[in-house]
């Protein structure tokens, strides 16, 4: 935690900023006729890790570029730590750590020199520069590539140098565009662990199209497609909105399948039941019971089974899958549009 506590809070925190470190309202960005970001509004509070989820070209990166001050918004407001990006760009940039997509850096510099450059730009002088570099290098485990030029590094190391650069000044807000893209599973795990470790007092925004990542690191997910916000909630909340949430699967012998289906269809709140042959055993049948509106029918199903005394080998309630919701939201949107 040394890296985190060393800098302390920026001086000019307003009351408002404690509640929302990043506040985006009615943000719109057009490229000619094309609307990349369409009237997007959301807030990120300290301690939150917000995941931007969306298909390619959904406007995730464009939104991040506007929050970090790289692109100007066509309309709408962005406030970071209570400061407006249009009126105080330098102050805002000082409070943000940003990892652009693909982690572009100065390839001809060594890790040490590059981080030194960043430290100087961030306003550190003298011994502080080296303290900052050392802390970032330790945190991202970059010691072995400290004196290597960045262009010779593997993808994983490059990404980590990019992250080191983003957290070097212990920013209040971290914006990471696809931080784990192209990394192997171990490296992904490391990056996610880092994000969780530093999340406690920061507002972190990450973009990804890896859905498991949202579950793994995000406290909240925003699903974006065609520049519009389609869903906003904790991963658990979102999953209840997925089709097939609380589907109950029962495995039973072929002989009892029909009787069981008959009995279950009498339950209230059941939308549909379909029966398939079990993959593990051809003599078994799998009954898939879909509830209306994702209601939880497990208790009533259990009650029914014990009442009717029909033999059931397995009973299992399925969680809604993020992937399902993602497809549901983003593809219907495409068809509608």
């Amino acid at each position: 935690m040394g890296l985190l506590s060393a800098l302390g809070a920026p001086k000019s925190w307003g009351e408002k900023s404690v509640q929302a470190m990043v506040s985006v309202s009615n943000l719109t960005r057009k490229f000619g006729e094309f609307t990349a970001v369409d009237d997007l509004s959301f807030k990120v509070a300290p301690g939150e890790v917000v995941g931007f989820l969306g298909p390619n070209g959904a406007g995730k990166s464009t939104t991040m570029k506007m929050i970090t001050g790289f692109l100007a918004a066509t309309a709408g407001q962005i406030e970071v730590c209570g400061l407006n990006i249009d009126t105080d760009p330098k102050q805002v940039k000082q409070r943000i750590g940003y990892l652009p997509e693909g982690a572009p850096m100065y390839g001809d510099m060594t890790t040490q020199r590059f981080l030194g450059f960043i430290a100087q730009v961030r306003g550190y002088r003298g011994a502080e520069i080296n303290n900052r570099i050392d802390a970032a290098i330790e945190r991202l485990e970059l010691e072995e590539v400290r004196y290597q030029t960045i262009e010779t590094l593997s993808k994983g190391f490059k990404r980590r140098v990019g992250l080191a650069q983003a957290i070097l000044h212990d920013p209040s807000v971290l914006v990471l565009d696809e931080p784990t893209d192209g990394l192997d599973p171990n490296q992904k795990y490391q990056v996610r662990k880092l994000i969780k470790d530093i999340a406690s007092e920061k507002a972190i925004i990450i973009s990804t199209h890896i859905l498991e990542e949202v579950d793994a690191v995000c406290s909240r997910a925003l699903i974006i497609a065609r520049g519009r916000l389609l869903a906003d909630g904790t991963p658990t909340e979102l999953m209840t909105r997925a089709e097939g949430h609380n589907t109950i699967e029962l495995v039973t012998g072929a002989a009892q399948a029909d009787a069981l289906q008959q009995a279950l269809s009498g339950l209230s709140g059941v939308a549909s039941i379909d029966t398939t042959i079990s993959r593990d055993n051809a003599d078994n049948r799998v009954l898939r019971l879909r509830p209306n509106d994702g209601a939880d029918l497990l208790d009533s199903v259990n009650a029914l089974i014990s009442e009717t005394n029909l033999p059931v080998q397995q009973i299992h309630r399925q969680q809604g899958r993020m992937e399902q919701l993602f497809r549901q939201l983003t593809t219907t949107d495409t068809e509608a549009g």
Binding site: K65, T68, G69, F70, K90, Q91, K93, Q94, I96, Y98, P100, E101, G102, P104, M105, Y106, G107, I118, V121, R122, G123, Q165
Partner: peptide, 14 residues
């Protein structure tokens, strides 16, 4: 070309 313009322009540099 390298995209580092995005890094440069999001640092607190005018």
């Amino acid at each position: 070309k390298s995209g580092s313009i995005e890094l440069l322009m999001t640092l607190p540099i005018s």
